[in-house]
Computed example of a mutant assay.
Amino acid sequence: MRAKLHPRQTERLAHLRKLGILDTAAETQFDEIVDLASRICEVPVALISLVDEDRQWFKARVGTDDPQTDLDRSICSHVILQGDLVEIPDTTLDVRTADNPLVVGEDHIRFYAGMPLISDDGLPIGTLCVLDRTPRVLTDLQRTTLRVLAGQLMRQVELGLALHQAEVLRGEIDHRVKNSLQTVLSVVRMYKSRVHNDVAIEALAAVERRIDAVAMLHQELYQTSQSNLVALAPYMVRVASLLEASAPSHVRLDMNVSQVQVPSSMAANIGMIISEFTANAIKHAFPDGRRGTVAISVEQTDDQGALRVHCRDDGIGNANPAEENEVTRLGQRLMQAAALQIGADFALEARADGYHLTMLVALTNDFNAEVAAE
């Protein structure tokens, strides 16, 4: 006999399609479940059966080559009407299955037990079931195992949906953030092209560098599966490429950054400090085509409890104090503010051999615990 439609059939089918599992390729974690169910229940056939509108489709199967059957042959469509394990010791004696083609035909199915796969909203999408060709009765352990495996299976399926939805949302947020940053950057560049005051131009240039750095940081965060940790080295490579593009041919940028992951706020402020130091050096340390190098290093201390940042240029240094004006002091204040935000020890010094910036920023216990958890 064919099963009645589920009372919430429309909702049930909508949720089954929403899960995105129908007609997908075989997956090891599901194959392992049916294999374990078959072994523990000591039966030749085990299935993850998803009951669709006019068929039941097997996400994983042991003991049969059929990928699906029509609902006239479906015992699982009866089981999804129940809220718990259904066990039919002899299918020839049960009104739901006595005339089923699987029972009266060459498949000769004589035993069936199935646990409905029920969503958090109470919607059954199918069953985890086991079948045999001789009548039998499950033990208490076998029944418990089917219930536990079905629960674990449903959690895996729902988790897959949640991860997919999170990825879609993440992509939408990424798109919106990129568009917003690009809009703000366009406005900044427009104003920068229209002002003639050196201080205002430098201030807008600093804002432009900060927006570019935030965009790069966002890209690094989007590409990683670790929600708030950024690989500092590739992020600084992105920052360096932006700085090199603005440097004249006689100024070289040399950067060496340890392979370490840091919180995004720390990466943003370190990137800000290095950007400002480099931009100031490019603009003021090498006048009249003087050749030189801006060297940047970021490394962990020996005990790995802190990051040591060292920036230096081999430019004119303190040879011309008059060069230190409101424009250069603006960059220094930006660096100091960024260092303060991450609690770093910060020092900037003009020497005869160029400017030197040293900074020590602690990797807190909370940060170390976060990295270990990842």
Rank of each mutant, 00 (worst) to 15 (best):
H6C: 03
A14Q: 15
L22C: 08
L22Q: 06
A26D: 14
A26E: 15
D31M: 03
L47M: 05
I48C: 01
L50N: 05
D52T: 09
Q56E: 14
W57G: 04
W57N: 07
G63C: 05
D65T: 11
D66Q: 15
Q68A: 15
I75E: 13
C76D: 07
C76V: 08
H78Q: 06
T92S: 10
T97K: 09
N100K: 12
V103D: 09
A113I: 01
S119H: 08
D120E: 15
G122W: 08
V137K: 14
T139F: 05
Q142H: 02
L146Q: 06
G151K: 11
G151P: 08
G151Y: 11
Q156R: 12
V157C: 03
A166F: 02
V168Y: 05
V168S: 00
E172C: 01
R176F: 11
V188Y: 13
Y191H: 13
Y191R: 10
N197S: 10
A203Y: 13
L204E: 11
A205W: 02
E208V: 03
E208Q: 13
V214A: 14
V214L: 13
A233S: 10
A233W: 00
P234A: 06
Y235D: 01
Y235L: 12
R238T: 04
V239W: 01
A247H: 04
V257S: 01
E276Y: 04
A281I: 05
F286Y: 04
D288F: 03
G289K: 02
R290L: 15
I296H: 03
S297C: 01
E299Y: 07
A306Q: 10
L307Y: 04
C311V: 03
R312E: 14
D314Y: 02
I316G: 02
N318S: 13
N318R: 14
V327Q: 04
L334V: 12
D345T: 12
A347Y: 11
E349T: 15
R351D: 15
A352Y: 12
E374T: 12
